[in-house]
Design a protein around this nucleic acid. Structure first.
Length: 224
DNA sequence: GACCAGGCACATC
DNA sequence: GATGTGCATGGT
């Protein structure tokens, strides 16, 4: 879909969701580094389980890239267990930490986060186990860059509203949002968080029907 | 017991 | 390039 009416429509969706759900306060995390960890651990995993794993890491003092490298893979497995895919995530987490440390330390706010957006994104995407959604989550929520995060709910929202058609690749959807919306990290932050909120509301296990798919139960909210 | 969750890499056709 | 599969726990 093209046309000048798109931005107002997107903003109306954003505003409607904000009015309904309130500010989401994303990302839940005490430091940029904790956001980075959470971004990897939440891959295809509910946030509840990620919280347990993060809590385990904290209890073991594994709260910095250095500590996680020092712990080794086996030293992470137990803590990561509740978040699922723990063998995989131990590797991914360490690969991310190694990359971060290669750009200098920085403790709870690793130096790598100071890179310009596209450089940071490239560095993140070069890490095995960090795909576009994880990279953009880190760029936006840990570094504060205006990088729009696209997830499964975002896709459904666009298709449900007829804003895009077919099965556009991740990069196209991200570029589309970034072209239509003002370049504002705070807006991207809230918008993605609100999309996840409405996704949970309509598509989560509790929802009898999905409001973002053609079976929609309450289109008013997201069509407003 | 089936299905899903704030993905990603890799194999195969 | 499109589609399929492994990775794994915890809630509904």
């Amino acid at each position: 879909m093209s046309g000048k009416g798109v931005r107002p429509r997107l903003m109306a969706i954003h505003d409607g969701l904000l009015a309904h759900f309130g500010p989401r306060g994303w990302w839940p995390g005490e430091s940029p580094f904790e956001v980075m960890v959470g971004a990897v651990l939440t891959q295809h995993t509910s946030w509840k389980n990620v919280e347990r794993a993060i809590s385990n890491l904290k209890a073991l003092g594994l709260t910095s890239p250095e500590a996680i490298m020092k712990a080794g893979e086996p030293g992470l497995l137990g803590a990561l267990k509740p978040s699922g895919y723990y063998n995989l995530k131990a590797k991914r987490l360490r690969a991310l930490c190694a990359m971060a440390l290669s750009h200098g330390k920085g403790g709870l706010r690793p130096k790598v986060l100071e890179l310009p957006l596209e450089e940071l994104r490239g560095a993140l995407l070069a890490v095995k186990g960090v795909g576009p959604e994880t990279a953009d989550s880190i760029a936006l929520y840990a570094a504060g860059h205006p990088s729009f995060v696209v997830d499964a709910y975002t896709r459904r929202l666009l298709l449900r509203h007829g804003l895009m058609e077919g099965d556009p690749p991740y990069e196209d959807i991200r570029a589309w949002f970034m072209e239509k919306l003002p370049n504002d990290a705070a807006l991207f932050n809230e918008f993605h968080a609100l999309i996840v909120a409405v996704g949970h509301h309509f598509c989560g296990p509790m929802a009898p029907q999905c409001g973002l798919c053609p079976l929609g139960s309450d289109p008013h909210l997201i069509l407003s």
